[in-house]
């Protein structure tokens, strides 16, 4: 088995669609890491995931998964990764046992005992048809299938969207367990940043098909800050430090991309820490500079 440093390496990937371009994107997911992949709807998250799974062909660039080329070693890679989609792609006529029978033949490392443990843990009925499952149950079944073949990389596309907080929390907890030996990695696309703030080590932010930020989550949060000031004070802030400005009746909130530097430069201003949600929001409006 190939030794690798990065579970995912995406270099200069471009994909043209009518009306949308995934524009020369590059980022890595180191082995043993949870990468949160954030961006608003239509930013290019699903296209990126579909490109790395080779569901869609890319126009240019290079993708390596688990140290292997995603085209040349496609089947070998897919045996070692697991994918969780936003919607369950399993047929309504099957039940949980049928799914085990199907995946048993597909994955050489399928572990029926582990699968049944997850089914029990999630309290999923074994004989009930999937068509009668709730959305939460469907997602749990998909996750049980994904985690039962000893996959080294788990790719999730909006897997927690539409689930209630209790189920989401339970699922996030299972992902943390899954990562414990440091040999496994997760790429988790979501626009629910609170989930990623809980579990992600790294974050990549995509907007309009371009990567705006990628790196360790704590560093990104540390670097960014929100200056709350009045309109006169706003004039003193260097435009080079500003990501975008949110105006309101009382003044303005300015996101800066170097909080430490800003705290020296604008000593008389209050600089609040920014959350991933804030960062996403201010970066999305970066072209407008001022928004409300």
């Amino acid at each position: 088995m190939t030794e690798y440093e990065n579970a995912i390496e995406i270099k200069g990937v471009t994909k043209y669609y009518d009306g949308f371009t995934l524009d020369n994107i590059s980022f890595d997911v180191p082995k043993g890491c949870i990468m949160g992949f954030i961006g608003q709807n239509g930013a290019g998250k699903t296209t990126t995931i579909r490109s790395l799974l080779r569901i869609t062909d890319i126009n240019s660039g290079e993708i390596r998964l688990l140290g292997l080329d995603h085209i040349k070693d496609e089947t070998a890679i897919k045996k070692r990764i697991a994918v969780v989609f936003d919607e369950l792609p399993f047929h309504d006529v099957f039940n949980a046992r049928d799914m085990a029978r199907i995946f048993e033949g597909m994955y050489p490392e399928w572990d029926n005992a582990a699968y049944m443990q997850y089914i029990e843990r999630f309290q999923l009925p074994v004989k009930k048809k999937i068509g009668q499952f709730s959305k939460g149950m469907k997602m749990k079944l998909q996750i049980a299938c994904a985690l039962s073949h000893n996959a080294e990389l788990l790719v999730m596309d909006e897997a927690t969207t539409g689930l209630d907080p209790v189920v989401r929390d339970e699922i996030l907890h299972i992902f943390m367990e899954y990562l414990q030996n440091g040999e496994r990695s997760i790429l988790m696309s979501s626009h629910i940043t609170s989930d990623l703030e809980k579990i992600a080590d790294m974050v990549t932010f995509i907007d309009k098909g371009k990567i705006l930020l990628t790196g360790y989550k704590d560093e990104i949060i540390e670097q960014h800050g929100i200056i709350k000031c009045n309109k006169e004070k706003l004039q003193e802030i260097d435009s080079g430090d500003i990501v975008s400005i949110r105006t309101n009746n009382f003044g303005a909130e300015v996101m800066v991309n170097d909080r430490e530097n800003a705290s020296y430069k604008y000593r008389d201003c209050v600089i609040d820490p920014a959350s991933l949600d804030d960062i996403m929001l201010y970066y999305v409006h970066r072209d407008m500079k001022e928004w409300s």
Binding site: V83, H91, D92, M106
Partner: peptide, 17 residues
């Protein structure tokens, strides 16, 4: 059945040709 379930959209993510 594949189309209705969404399997058609996702089958390339699974390890079979």
């Amino acid at each position: 059945a594949d189309e209705d379930a969404g399997w058609k959209r996702c089958r390339l993510a699974f390890p079979y040709s």
